[in-house]
């Protein structure tokens, strides 16, 4: 009984999505920016996350515990607070108001989570299985062993970085100096202007992008795994 109550509490906020239907969908600069950022940040996160986790698990180095702390600590620094500092720092090198600057700070907020997720997943898979992959050339190692084994965690990394990127308003507004529109910044403008249908259209985009990426990635992975398994016969 209590489980049904919990299920209801999880689902009920989604009712808000159907209160007013978005009138017309317009394909504009904000949506393109958002999709470009989501895809590039997710790709870099998977690459750097898995690579760093690999180093943390398999390399003997006296710097290891330091690196572990460095990857762990940023989770405990309030994003907005360190963002004020990065704002001053990036202003010195002229990255305020540029696409590169915004991309960089979006990467800063997502990477610690990705390294953590990749590390935990590879720790569970275990050293013996991953060590056998070392005989392959790098590309084959990634394609035939790492990605199929890490399927679920790659999906989780992409999901986490997508959702975090889509949540950032202040970061994009401050570092982008208001020059780089995304769906999130549009949502705040529409909200301030009391434009419910515009705001709701943006909310729809924000909710459906992570779902589409998650399902799409799952599909691509299962096709790839079937192809790889076909090589065994």
């Amino acid at each position: 009984m209590s489980r049904i109550l919990v299920a209801f509490l999880i689902v009920f906020p989604f009712i808000g999505l159907f209160l007013t239907f978005p009138t017309s969908f317009s394909w504009d600069e904000a949506i393109l920016n958002t999709i470009a950022y989501v895809i590039s940040i997710a790709l870099v996160n998977v690459w750097l996350g898995v690579g760093t986790a690999w180093w943390l698990l398999f390399t003997e180095s006296r710097w290891k515990s330091w690196v572990e702390w460095l990857t762990f600590l940023p989770l405990f620094i309030p994003v907005l607070a360190s963002m004020f500092g990065m704002y001053i720092a990036l202003a010195q090198v002229g990255l305020i108001g540029t696409y590169t600057g915004v991309g960089l700070v979006l990467l800063v907020t997502t990477l610690p989570y990705s390294i953590r997720l990749a590390y935990n997943a590879m720790y569970v898979i275990g050293r013996p299985l991953l060590e056998q992959a070392l005989t392959f050339a790098p590309l084959a190692r990634i394609g035939f062993v790492l990605l199929p084994l890490l399927k679920e965690s790659v999906r989780t990394i992409v999901l986490f970085s997508t959702v975090i990127v889509l949540s950032q308003f202040v970061l994009v507004q401050l570092i982008g100096a208001g020059l780089i529109p995304t769906v999130t910044t549009r949502l705040y403008q529409a909200y301030a202007g009391n434009d419910v249908s515009q705001a709701l259209q943006n909310t729809w985009v924000l909710v459906s992008l992570p779902v589409l990426f998650y399902i799409g990635l799952g599909g691509i992975f299962s096709i790839w795994i079937r192809l790889v398994k076909g090589r065994l016969q």
Binding site: W47, L48, V50, G51, T52, W54, W55, F58, T59, V67, L70, T71, P74, I77, A81, S82, M83, F84, G85, M86, Y87, I88, A89, L104, V105, L107, V108, L111, P112, I115, P138
Partner: peptide
């Protein structure tokens, strides 16, 4: 492979600390 991505990660992860230093 893992070494180059480690260095890139370290540069990225050092940014929040740089931010705090600037504060």
């Amino acid at each position: 492979m893992s070494r180059s991505s480690l260095w890139l990660s370290l540069v990225v992860l050092a940014l929040p600390f740089t931010g705090v230093t600037f504060l």
